[in-house]
Amino acid sequence: MQMSNKVSELSMLEAINETLHSEMARDERVVVLGEDVGRNGGVFRATEGLIEKFGERRVVDTPISEAAIAGSAVGLAMAGLVPVVEIQFLGFSYQAMHQIAGQIARLRYRTQSRFEPQITIRAPFGGGVRTPELHSDSLEAQFANIPGLKIVMPSTAADAKGLLTSAIRDPDPVLFLEPLRGYRGIRDLVPDEDHLVPLGQANLVKKGDDVVIISWSYQVELSKRVAESLEGEGISAAVLDLRSIVPLDIEAVTEIVSHCGRAVVVQEAPETGGFASEIIATINDECFWSLEAPVARVSGFDVPYPVGMLENLYVPDETRIHSAVLKTMESG
């Protein structure tokens, strides 16, 4: 195949839609199922045009049944198909939790690979767009505590394409989390051709020497802006985008934290039991003695995700990230 280096500027949503089109065209085993994914093209249009191109046998509007959507994906995978499931909002995954945690994630282990869960579960999540209740919760740490599930959280349109392609082709189940604010708010240059980003490879999106901001998904976007503004204050801040929290790129975390000696971890999820805690424990294991200051974290609060008028207080913003970095620079 002739590979061109052509790129197009796409929103993250367009990149996801394009990837679904290309993976369905590439592999006839791929089927897309979920609520409103067919005729409506998804409530955000992520699946737009699929049903017209690939037909209603491969693009299926399901009843409002998250457990049956996730559960039937197990059966589809047992039949040798490659289901790409959409859970309309990650908060609704609670209704499918026993199928995701108790069945999909364990299928390979409990059958000793007789059955292969080549299943991708896409779900939008995250704050900043004033959704109704349970539409914005960042649940990634809950899923990270379930062995057998990969968790991918892109922060750019190009990565969304590269990582979703890898997720769909991965023989293990992948939870692919799409930031609501990034759907149209993130735009960048996306390769036109086949584009794969391996799962478990973090991306050092900005180099720096004094401190590293470690994050994933939309918070990477904010972290980049903060890091750039810190340059003007004479602070050289690196930004590490984890891209996937399972598998976790332990080497990349260790390398940049060892280099900078100071780190701030940014997540949208509540502070207690969040994945930031896992990153800090990893730093503790790997490179504690290279630290010049305690690792800080910027998180949501330990309350349920709030209603729209309180949202801006809850979700970490540039100001909070900025002051966490300054505090880290001053301590130690």
Partner: peptide
């Protein structure tokens, strides 16, 4: 829990014309 698996498996078999 295996009831939706059965439905998915049967559905998959029919998609593959098995």
């Amino acid at each position: 829990a295996s009831i939706p698996h059965a439905v998915g498996l049967a559905w998959g078999m029919s998609l593959k014309d098995e």
